[in-house]
């Protein structure tokens, strides 16, 4: 079972449980509180430098690498309230569409990874690739540098349209946690520009696989190869011998990009719960 379902699912898929989205709007200050700098202000670039330390540690040896990785995971657990350093999870389009009905407000914003990796700015609404969820978004003006171009508020129907558009373009959807039991964002990632995905695929933490895996119906597949261009995880390749798509379910993240891209509906997403041998593959 997915660790988050076990902790916060209340018997359902955890990200379809509305209890994992709400936040209070106001916090009264403690009478004796001293003004405290936000984490980002106290240590700008902290995450980037931690990543750099990880690479440096690989030059030193296995013990140093494992210790640095552990410190990073524990740090993420402490700040994000996540478990084992996993703060995100792959979500297929159909579930992302259900998620936007459970969270509010929905704000389209610029992607932080693309800003860091390529210095890309997404100032206008059609450029945005990230969605912030929850009442914290109402206070974005506290840190305008994070929200270059501001927040574009959308209704859940508009959000679904936006998600479908990004899906067509080939972005995989994932959720992000910002604090214990609080889903605060839907990211649209592509490797290696998405840092969270790069960390998962290169160093093995930061994002869990989803709740589904993809399977091909060879009777329907005509070997067009469109799906192979969309898989970001090296799970789907064209089986040249029989000229059909082939999916390795051990590697599949269940993002569903191949399913939504297939012109012949040859690919379907199967719930992992139905496949006993995949219960511990996250």
């Amino acid at each position: 079972m997915c660790i988050y379902c076990e902790l916060w699912g209340d018997g359902m898929t955890w990200y379809l449980n509305p209890k994992n989205y709400p936040r209070h709007m106001y916090t009264l200050p403690r009478p004796d509180a001293k003004p405290r700098a936000a984490a980002g202000e106290a240590n700008p670039g902290g995450y980037i430098n931690a990543e750099r330390a990880l690479v440096d540690a690989m030059e030193k040896g296995p013990e140093e690498f494992e210790a640095t990785l552990k410190a990073m995971r524990d740090g993420a657990d402490l700040v994000q309230g996540c478990v084992g350093g996993f703060m995100g999870q792959a979500v297929p389009l159909r579930d992302a569409e259900k998620m936007v009905e459970m969270a509010n407000p929905l704000g389209l914003i610029a992607c932080l990874c693309r800003k860091a990796m390529l210095a890309v700015e997404e100032r206008s609404r059609p450029e945005t690739t990230c969605m912030g969820l929850g009442v914290g978004m109402l206070k974005w003006e506290r840190w305008p540098e994070r929200y270059k171009g501001g927040v574009h508020w959308v209704s859940s129907d508009e959000a679904k349209e936006w998600l479908r558009d990004l899906d067509t373009r080939g972005f995989m959807h994932s959720l992000m946690m910002f604090g214990p039991r609080f889903i605060g964002g839907i990211c649209n990632c592509d490797y290696p520009v998405c840092d969270a995905l790069a960390m998962r695929l290169d160093f093995g933490f930061n994002m869990l696989k989803g709740h589904h895996v993809a399977m091909v119906d060879h009777d329907l597949c005509n070997g067009c190869g469109i799906c192979a261009q969309r898989c970001q995880f090296g799970a789907l390749k064209m089986n040249v011998t029989i000229d059909k798509a082939n999916i390795d379910q051990m590697r599949c993240f269940g993002c569903g990009l191949c399913e939504t891209g297939c012109p012949r509906q040859a690919i379907s997403l199967v719930e992992k719960a139905k496949l006993p041998a995949l219960q511990e593959v996250w």
């Binding site: 660790i3 030059e59 296995p62 084992g84 160093f203 093995g204």
Partner: peptide
């Protein structure tokens, strides 16, 4: 903090530790 010791936290490590240390530019 909540006790999560009973949980099986997946820990895949794609980095092959036996190959470390490596040298980078």
């Amino acid at each position: 903090m909540v006790d999560r010791s009973h949980l099986k936290v997946p820990k895949p490590t794609p980095v092959d530790l036996t190959k470390l240390p490596l040298k980078f530019p």
